[in-house]
Design a protein around this nucleic acid. Structure first.
Lengths: 236, 236
DNA sequence: GACGTTTTAGACAATAGTGTCTAATTTGAC
DNA sequence: GTCAAATTAGACACTATTGTCTAAAACGTC
């Protein structure tokens, strides 16, 4: 028995709803189980039960456990990626209150990418299986935190140019921004639960305040251009 | 080559040296294998081979796999804890250059607790098995990042009182300090390798610069005052 | 209703791992 | 050298899991 289904699924737009919905529920259940049990601990039977399909159907769509795993990782990465950019687009073009805008932005980012089910999945699985599948997660490095990093860096560059921020290493600032947002959150998410709205708000507020204390342009200096104020001594 | 066997260990009633060294090599090998394979993926046989003992000896010392696992976690936590406090003691009583002293401190912290083999173990295993063994890792929360957090907070309180720093939430500052140090490091450690000395230096330097820009007391302001306004640091 | 495809349940072999048991062997203390 | 404790190798029963196979059932389309 070859696999006409994979070809059919990819090539033709003739996809049947049944097939597709099975695929989706398998991916969903697999993400759940892989995340909960890890790759070695997850059993195909468990996934099949949770997905509401027979084990054979899984082996039908994905040759073996590893194939399923990589498919799940790619699926979650794509979803996270999409969500990421839709959130980036929500940052106002002309922020009127940088602290409020950045805080709200951090909250959206945290709850849709970081504290998400998908975010949890990626964090856990990259951590535990990253060394075993380097080429798989190298995509995550580039398109996950890598991409959010560069996107954030671009945002900060824009804000710097607009005069609200002042910094010389946008990538560094982006990494630090994310680290600060996570500072208060990781203890919660690591414990396995999702932060409440209030916890999210506080974490974002704390992160943004510190970030702005380090990087906001001197008040009353509507700086244009890239000139550097007397803010920091470029050390060594 | 993992046998510091002359270390004085816990006296368990009938202490013989042979027993003790076996115990240590079992714990060592188990830590290695659990870290590499996760709890489910690790096999007792693999650990036995790596430890250079027979499988039966492991079952002799630890009733079952789970017992061994918890013993390993506790062992690693204790080691990390000890290392932590010895490092904390290295921070000078009267720092002459806050940036340099904090950077050097951050480097020591990172390479002895965070990027360590033990640090890697705790990060990975807490992440992947934390939800399954909450009571086990609750100790980690209190004595790991929890304890380092409070110890750091105490340090920052001292520095604030001395006039070098200015902040009103010491615990928050401690969390943020650690987060900033990790900001540049986690991408490296997550990938599985240890950072070079240069990477460590840069990460620490970047973290401390941002931290001080957010929290250093205004120059020429000797001390006191729990109040901190939204001022930034002209530093240098 | 007929037909091709997908799905299903279940049996199946093969492999791997856990934890126990026993008997032989080593080890260290006296 | 003796003796007891620790260690070892190996067999063992038991369970779990992977991945394959087959024949029956469900599904969708015409």
């Amino acid at each position: 028995m070859t696999n006409p289904k994979e070809a059919a699924h990819k090539a033709t737009g003739h996809t049947q709803r049944g097939q597709c919905s099975k695929r989706l529920s398998i991916l969903d259940a697999a993400a759940e189980v892989f995340c909960r049990e890890g790759f070695a601990g997850a059993s195909i039977d468990e996934i099949a039960v949770e997905a509401g399909v027979s084990r054979q159907t899984i082996y039908n769509h994905y040759r073996e456990k590893e194939t399923l795993f990589t498919a799940v990782v790619e699926d979650v990465m794509n979803r996270t990626n999409a969500s990421l950019f839709s959130i980036l687009a929500t940052f106002p073009d002309k922020p009127d209150n940088l602290e409020d805008d950045l805080s709200a932005f951090a909250v959206r980012l945290a709850q849709n990418c970081l504290c998400n089910q998908d975010g949890k999945f990626l964090r856990k699985l990259v951590q535990s299986e990253g060394e075993r599948y380097p080429q798989l997660f190298e995509g995550w490095r580039r398109h996950g935190p890598g991409k959010i990093g560069t996107a954030l860096a671009a945002l900060f560059a824009r804000l710097s140019h607009g005069g609200g921020l002042q910094m010389d290493d946008f990538d560094l600032a982006a990494r630090q921004f994310l680290a600060l947002v996570n500072a208060d959150l990781q203890m919660i998410t690591l414990f396995g639960e999702s932060p409440t709205g209030e916890q999210l708000d506080n974490a974002a507020r704390n992160a943004v305040r510190t970030f702005l204390r380090a990087y906001s342009a001197p008040a009353g200096n509507p700086a244009m251009g890239a000139d550097n104020g007397p803010q920091r001594a470029p050390q060594a």
